[in-house]
Design a protein around this nucleic acid. Structure first.
Length: 477
RNA sequence: GGCCCUAUCGUCUAUCGGUUAGGACACAACGUUUUCAAUGUUGGAAGCGGGGUUCGACUCCCCGUAGGGUCACCA
């Protein structure tokens, strides 16, 4: 039973950065293609020249690549259906537009933008939807390419269709109108161009966010006029702002996806987080790799209700994926976010320090924040001697110094392997005999100068034997 | 305002007529421990309201209510 090969696409417009909503859409379309051994296409819809933002295309490519999305055909790699930039496909759109004109299903819009705007305002004031067809000219001029070209809806009815996610949908006749398919600048609108491209590129499944539900009846009318069988449609639920009250927009904190990269979030965590907004697997798994997501992905399990963007959950996902990284990988991230002054840390010190840091963060920019607050300074500079701190939780300063003196002796005599477990066992019996706190608190202060720090044995391990003894001795004098 | 979609713990969700309504995040308590962190255990916490259908509704239908989308020479 050879089914038709599945082809999906992600088709953003180059009008700025890609935010999480766009990436989520791409992720679903990509996963569906991958799961079914299909083709995934990256197409750029640059028909709105006024809104185009320089550099967007590269930014989109970088964003998708960051989360691990790959495409089989697309703007940067070409493919059998090239070009993948709509501004280079104008002939196709004109051909189909002309077809409609010839059939009497498209006509030139004779009004000025101001006149149309006036119709719209009036409709708004009268609290009814704006319908251009109420103003459809009786004898439209011949289309010479300088006026907008409108599709003429001939069958005004309630539209019924099926959505792979929402099931049977319908919309009243108010959803149908004469909409523009070619603008006065000669470029097509999305309304026309996306379906021509999908047809020519063999797209079988369209995945897009729910704001397109309302215009689907228009698309369906145009498909019919063009005698094109529409692809199957899967509508994705909206991503809501953290308060859950409205759709997440750029004004509500929908950041550039690459900002999360800059903040030290892991791409695999971002992917994991994003796919769980609007989808969930059959079982109760949450932490998943990209491949596990692809394997588990089913359109049937895409949700219909909107999901909120929850930073706490993202942080949790990030921690979970952080733990799965090798120490080497963790180390290169930590190095990236550690300020310049820490470059004096030796490689071997870093190897021991990294796990200690990773245990205390959700994402790597916290490393920079903690460093900013002086959190790691004692790894590169010995803390200054403070008697008051040294005697905290011990009886007297003399006693604290005696304990440190003994610790120094024990460590000095020890010549085995230098790691926190061994260091601990060297000191432990003594600490137990006189009371752990009275030994460990002074050690902590002598080594870090702080009352909140990692275990003193771990500190000693990271600092090395020489530096450890040096710091302890400086507090005995 | 018209058209359309949605509705389970604070948040994300499971449930596809019969469950003590399950899980995760967050939160709280306790345990471990030399502090912090990490970790372990436990806990509180939900079916928007009203009608139906049914032996039985979170689940199906209707009406409210609330939220969201849309009504561009943007996609």
């Amino acid at each position: 039973h050879m089914n038709k090969k599945i082809v999906t696409r992600f088709a953003p417009s180059p009008t700025g950065f890609l935010h999480i909503g766009g990436v989520r859409t791409a992720l679903f379309a990509w996963a569906f293609a991958r799961k079914n051994n299909g083709t995934f296409i990256l197409r750029i819809e640059d028909t709105d020249k006024a809104r185009e933002v320089e550099g967007s295309i590269q930014h989109i490519i970088d964003s998708l690549k960051w989360v691990g999305i790959t495409w089989d055909e697309g703007i940067d790699i070409g493919g059998p259906n090239a070009p993948y930039l709509q501004s280079e496909r104008l002939e196709s759109y004109k051909k189909y537009a002309q077809k409609l004109v010839d059939k009497g299903l498209a006509y030139a819009d004779p009004y000025t933008p101001e006149e149309v705007e006036a119709f719209r305002v009036k409709a708004q004031e009268e609290k009814r939807p704006f319908l251009f067809r109420d103003h459809r000219p009786e004898n439209p001029p011949v289309w010479d390419g300088t006026q907008p070209l409108r599709f003429k809806v001939t069958d005004i009815k309630t539209t019924h269709w099926n959505d792979l996610v929402y099931g049977d949908l319908s919309a009243g006749p108010e959803a149908l109108d004469d909409f523009i398919i070619i603008k006065s600048d000669g470029y097509p609108t999305y309304n026309l161009s996306h379906m021509i491209d999908d047809l020519e590129m063999g797209v079988t499944h369209i995945m897009r966010a729910d704001e397109f539900i309302a215009s689907t009846p228009k698309f369906l009318a145009l498909y019919e006029a063009l005698e094109i069988t529409p692809p199957l449609m899967a509508t994705l639920p909206p991503i809501m702002a953290p308060d859950g009250k409205k759709k997440l927009g750029k004004r509500d904190g929908a950041k550039d996806i690459l900002d999360y990269k800059a903040e030290g979030y892991l791409p695999e965590a971002m992917l994991n987080f994003l796919v769980f907004i609007g989808w969930s697997p059959k079982d109760e798994r949450e932490v998943m790799t990209a491949q596990e997501f692809i394997d588990a992905f089913e359109i049937e399990r895409i949700h219909r209700s909107g999901g909120g963007f929850n930073v706490d959950k993202l942080d949790w996902f990030n921690r979970e994926h952080l733990k799965k990284l090798s120490v080497g990988e963790q180390k290169s991230y930590v190095q990236k976010f550690l300020p310049e002054r820490f470059s004096s840390l030796s490689d071997s010190m870093l190897d021991k320090l990294v796990p200690v840091i990773v245990e205390r963060i959700h994402h790597f920019s916290e490393v920079a924040e903690m460093a900013e607050q002086g959190e790691f300074d004692y790894y590169i500079n010995a803390p200054s001697f403070e008697e008051s701190k040294l005697i905290w939780k011990t009886d007297t300063l003399d006693q604290a110094k005696d304990h440190l003196k003994k610790v120094c002796e024990l460590l000095n005599d020890y010549s085995g392997e230098w790691n926190s477990e061994e260091i601990k066992s060297v000191i432990w019996d003594y600490a137990e005999s006189v009371g752990r706190g009275s030994v460990l608190w002074p050690m902590r202060y002598a080594l870090s100068g702080r009352d909140k720090s990692p275990d003193p044995f771990i500190l000693a391990d990271i600092l090395g034997k020489d530096e450890t003894l040096k710091r302890l001795q400086s507090h005995i004098v």
